[in-house]
Write a protein that binds this DNA or RNA. Structure first.
Lengths: 192, 192
DNA sequence: CCCTTGCTAGAACCATCGTTATAGTAAAAC
DNA sequence: GTTTTACTATAACGATGGTTCTAGCAAGGG
């Protein structure tokens, strides 16, 4: 086994490379060879680890999902009021942007465009992203909106989606700050 | 010239087919052959009319841009107050959805994902969509928000993008109605 | 020492896809 | 009646891309 302490395993490097290329240049747009070149890994290893390109994509999205959950939870923990906790998803975005300023955003949105087939294995993961986020929002909205928590959560989710889409379109403004402003307004009308 | 009164020209049929396939299944996902089959047109005609696949895509997006401008203007004309005029883009969405319920939405958002290269001829069109929309919003926001018109217009644009992204993700709720609610709240705080 | 594990290198295969080329048809224009 | 115009049908070319195959190396475990 090549356990050189400095370099991560081939599997890790493949996932990292896929992460950067798939959601920067598009999934169908980046060839398997591109991923291999960036990861510095041979073809055989990729197919041994992931079966095929779809397998790599699935694994990459699964990892993204976990990473985002960590970002969310971290942001929620740092917040100090009910309202701040509900709006923590925007802090999570900010956090992520700070660490990866080159990101073109959101992997799951891109995937939804490129893999329209609902039966595709990957489609379930893009839905899972929305579902998991929605669950968190629902819990956090309850102390603020009570019986109307569902509506409030849905509204925040829409604003969140707007942020992602604005990034994707290359909005010149700062969508996160804008979204936060709008979200605050929305929350207030529910809280009253 | 084959000017059979019933059937539209081959060029029209190609544009229609491209419209339906590109933004339903993805651009790179739909082959030239798929477009040809759907349009009932031969290969030579496509290349005579549009040069290549990119040409067809460009023409298709240009037409979309014009069509959406008409939808916007129609909705704006039907509105009867300053606020209603600003929110008319959501009526335009509703109008469009009524006529094309199968749409997976938004051509320009999809294109932004699939053609990340900013120098690509098509990238200018996706930016044009945002620009044109923003200009309209800015004009309509002024009687409501005065000096803060720019911020209000940006906010409405973000909510609009959120609607499109929610559709793309297959939101179970009705994003248009939600977006309208949120937009009303936002407008009110500016109008006060 | 051998065997397994985790990899690499490089070539080859096959399908798909954008594009071009050849040849031909039906109807409008003149 | 000849020439354009607006097409069609079919085949082929060239490149790319996902996938598979063969062969081999280096290191740790038993």
């Amino acid at each position: 086994m090549k356990t050189q302490p400095g370099t991560p395993s081939a599997r890790q490097r493949l996932l990292d490379a896929a992460d950067e290329l798939f959601y920067l240049n598009g999934i169908t747009n980046t060839g398997v060879d591109d991923v291999l070149a960036r990861a510095g890994v041979s073809v055989a290893t990729l197919y041994a680890q992931f079966g095929n390109k779809d397998g790599l994509l699935s694994a990459s999205l699964s990892r993204r999902l976990e990473i985002w959950q960590e970002y969310w939870d971290e942001a929620i923990r740092s917040a100090e009021s009910d309202q701040e906790r509900l709006l923590a998803i925007f802090d999570a975005l900010e956090l992520y942007r700070g660490r990866r300023p080159d990101a073109r955003w959101c992997a799951f949105l891109s995937t939804a465009v490129e893999i329209p087939d609902a039966k595709h294995a990957v489609a379930a993961l893009t839905r899972a992203d929305t579902t998991l986020l929605n669950q968190r929002l629902l819990t956090l909205a309850e102390p603020l909106a009570g019986a109307e928590a569902e509506r409030l959560a849905a509204a925040v989710l829409l604003i969140y989606n707007g942020t992602l889409a604005s990034f994707l379109r290359g909005s010149p403004e700062d969508p996160i700050a804008q979204a936060r402003e709008i979200a605050v307004l929305t929350v207030r009308t529910f809280a009253e």
